[in-house]
Amino acid sequence: MDFAGALSPDNLRFILEGFYVTLKVAFISIVLSFVLGCLVGTIRYAKIPILAPVLGVIVEILRNLPLLLIIFFTRFALPDIGIKLDVVTSAIVALTLFEGAIISEIVRSGLNSVNKGQIEASRSSGLGYTQTLWHIVMPQGLRRMVPPLVSQFIALLKDTSLAVVISLPELMNHSKIVIAQSYDFVIPVLMVVALLYFSVNYALSLIARRLEAKFV
């Protein structure tokens, strides 16, 4: 083990550059998959004809496949049908599709958990369907969604590491380049990498717990 050599300023900077890409890709994918998940989840909750069942099938397929496979697909199969994406974009698209499918299920079951009696009461007191959805169902459903949503965001951040297979220059990719310099670097570098992932995700999970305590 060679801590000093493994964590020289150059190597450390290189590892952190990778971490920046991890955070950037994760952040963009979290925002996009949340939007996508909310949309698909709401459409399926509201049982909009045609759209809801079609999305249902797509969601089922996406969330039952390994993300690793979806990442490889978006990188090398989409271009076959004319959609060309660079490494960063295809990683974001893959993560957004996969995590969006899972988030849509979280959203749907969150909305479903709202007491039907309340919906009927609100409808009979004169509110429209959209108004009921917006003012009665959403706020209550959202409260129940917060804990699973945050753990899904943590999962997404961890899942960015799978994009090493398409050579996304993220944390794992960069740390492997550093490790390649000498086998004595393996343990020190892996410790730093674990620490980086852990600190961000642990902070997120603390925030989740805070939110949970506040809402529930």
Binding site: L39, V40, I58, L62, I70, L78, I81, L97, G100
Partner: peptide
């Protein structure tokens, strides 16, 4: 909303059913 639905569908259709 609609714009997002459309783009999501396009993306999903390409990813899932291509």
């Amino acid at each position: 909303f609609m714009l997002f639905v459309i783009s999501a569908l396009v993306l999903a259709a390409c990813g899932g059913g291509s």
